[in-house]
């Protein structure tokens, strides 16, 4: 066989309207309830979209319904994680990718701020120590004469 064209199979690309699972609507109601509990009691919710039947078309529908908000962040740790606030404040899409850009999982987080964006408490001590070290090195370095 010379090339792929000689295989008599027609590959249909693009997203297919018909590949909807009808799961977007119940999910939107779940988000509504989660947002209500965030507002009333401060309790956060995380929904793992990788754990339910959810097609690429569903994801596109969901993203269109939720829109884009003001915050868009990338966390570079163990591969990138894309954090996107939706048009509904408090509703975030958190997409975990590995170093080769393959998706590990996709979370919907209903919170004031996704955990991943908060500086881990354990990092503060390390951070202070290394800043002190850097400052010591800076003050010890010989200053160059300005002509």
């Amino acid at each position: 066989m010379d090339n792929l064209e000689s295989i008599a199979v027609r590959v249909e690309d693009g997203l297919d309207e018909s590949l909807r699972t009808d799961n977007v609507w119940p999910l939107l109601r779940q988000i509504e309830q989660a947002l209500q509990s965030l507002q009333e009691s401060g309790s956060e919710t995380v929904i793992d979209l990788g754990a339910m039947p959810f097609s690429a078309q569903d994801e596109q529908d969901l993203r269109e319904r939720l829109g884009r908000g003001e915050v868009n962040a990338t966390v570079e740790a163990f591969g990138p994680t894309l954090v996107q606030e939706t048009a509904f404040a408090g509703v975030w899409l958190v997409e975990y990718l590995d170093a080769e850009q393959r998706r590990l999982t996709l979370h919907l987080q209903i919170a004031r701020i996704p955990d991943l964006l908060i500086t881990p408490a354990d990092d503060l001590a390390d951070s202070l120590a290394s800043l002190r070290r850097a400052n010591r090195d800076f003050s010890a370095a010989p200053t160059e004469d300005v002509q």
Partner: peptide
């Protein structure tokens, strides 16, 4: 792998 990486 950082702490954030570990949480991920």
């Amino acid at each position: 792998v950082s702490r954030r990486g570990f949480m991920k």
